[in-house]
Design a protein around this nucleic acid. Structure first.
Lengths: 278, 278
DNA sequence: GCATTTTTAGAATATTTATTCTATTTTTCC
DNA sequence: GGAAAAATAGAATAAATATTCTAAAAATGC
């Protein structure tokens, strides 16, 4: 290498800044044996704790013996933990800007900038979650869980903007070994006849309500299957087709839902159903 | 003194919070002998350094011998320096709740009522959003938007737990008339050849990272297409395949992500790209 | 399936760091 | 100004903490 290189590529030297540290971490963590990988992952997720923790504490957090953490420090290029910690102690500036200050900073990037948008969506999500906490109807939620837990197969439908929620539910059900079927409309195939007596339908739709979802709910109802609705308000056309209705208040920003509250509700429903089933 | 006083009524007990600490400091520092006053002054002006400094370092800063600082700690009501430091270390790292054990407890106690679960998921979502606000990397976000806005077609991939995010992105891109293609793996069809020069890939994956997503990213990279990563940490294997990386801190509750922060980030990215395009 | 190399755990050790103690100095108050 | 009390410095010690080392376990290559 050309020795006139002013800033040394620092191939094996210790990282000199937190940024440097992150880069190095990303570089090496591609192929790492098990314990060292645990260290890397934990450190990546808890970088801020390094400055105020001992080797032993971090080791417990990463679920490795202290000596593994020492080896990790060394392959990161430090002589040991103390040297690594010094980097973070010097860079330590406590009290990240608190949540609201930070949001203001993000917004000040200028209207329409990615950061400003992010701030808006974060705020929308948080408002939605707070509203949900205040308005959640425990009785309706309990009844919904009961209906779904008693079903043989749970059919899930949610299209367009509700589709992400439906796919997440399908994922969670699968992880919990709950028999569930996602009606996704692929190939315009209509799997309504997959719904058998003893099954239940979980239908998700928000204004403007999706025709296909309403149609499937109608079908389930007319065949006497229990229908659980996850929708935006009690005036939703889904309500009169359903045996239990869970509503979720969601703050829209522009044309788009934050989905935070909806997903929190969906996941609670799914996990509750999963544990009710054993 | 009455020898029956077992616990000294704690009228001068240790401060229990940083606020408490400041109050106590203000109270006592009125009349203090010279060295202790130096300690008080220095500590008042450098409260934030307590968490990451040793007695010796602070003593040098306050220009007193270490033993003076020890006396100061005791005057403040602590048993010693370590106890005082603990207050500041704990106050700094608020420590995310350990949701996986909490969920296990909920299940084991059978007390996993749906509304209790909902409360937990709402909390997890809120924490995630706040963490996102605090840690969001505006530069990386800006770069990602730039890359995607310059692309002809945007290819989106995200499977399993990331699939809801991918589908939501596809929805938003469609609404904004941005040419985008969702690689959903339906029918095990691999649409890698749909990626043409001038296109870009937006890849989403969280631990445990999805093989297919990494493979597609690798493919895009080797063909020289820009890759934007939306992932959980800088140690993700996606990082070394990508030209821009956006990380999202998400509180996991048991095996499940709240997704609030991830979706907020995704939607911001999509809307920013949409408006950058016109 | 065996030999070689890498990785690991945990005990042993070295180092740093906190804390206490005592002789000395400074302050207080009569 | 001198006796009593309080405060101080610095050395001595105790405790916590980091670091190294070795035998054992995995992983790798042939």
């Amino acid at each position: 290498m050309d020795e006139t290189t002013i800033i040394p590529a620092n191939p094996k030297g210790a990282p000199l800044s937190v940024d440097d540290f992150r880069t190095r971490l990303a570089e090496i963590s591609a192929d790492l044996p098990r314990r060292l990988r645990q260290c890397a992952d934990f450190v990546a997720a808890n970088t801020d704790r390094i400055a105020v923790s001992t080797v032993a504490e971090l080791a417990v957090g990463a679920d490795v013996p202290p000596s593994a953490l020492m080896r990790f420090c060394q392959i990161m290029g430090f002589s040991g933990f103390s040297e690594m910690q010094r980097l973070f102690r010097e860079a330590y500036s406590p009290g990240w800007p608190d949540y609201s200050t930070r949001l203001k900073n993000l917004k000040e990037e200028g209207a329409g900038s990615p950061s400003a948008l992010l701030a808006e969506f974060i705020e929308a999500g948080r408002l939605s979650l707070e509203a949900l906490a205040k308005t959640a109807d425990e009785v309706a939620l309990g009844r919904s869980v009961g209906l779904l837990a008693a079903a043989q197969t749970i059919h899930v439908i949610g299209l367009r903007r509700a589709f992400p929620v439906a796919t997440y539910l399908a994922y969670v059900f699968e992880k919990m070994a709950v028999p569930a079927m996602l009606h996704d409309g692929v190939g315009k195939l209509d799997h309504r006849f997959a719904m058998r007596p003893g099954d239940a339908l979980l239908a998700i739709t928000f204004a403007p309500y999706s025709e296909e979802t309403l149609a499937l709910a109608q079908d389930a109802k007319s065949r006497g299957l229990p229908v659980v609705a996850l929708t935006d308000r009690m005036t939703s056309p889904l309500v009169r087709l359903s045996d239990a209705v869970v509503t979720v208040p969601e703050v829209d920003f522009g044309a788009f839902r934050s989905l935070s509250a909806t997903i929190a509700m969906a996941i609670s429903l799914a996990v509750a159903v999963g544990s009710a089933r054993g």
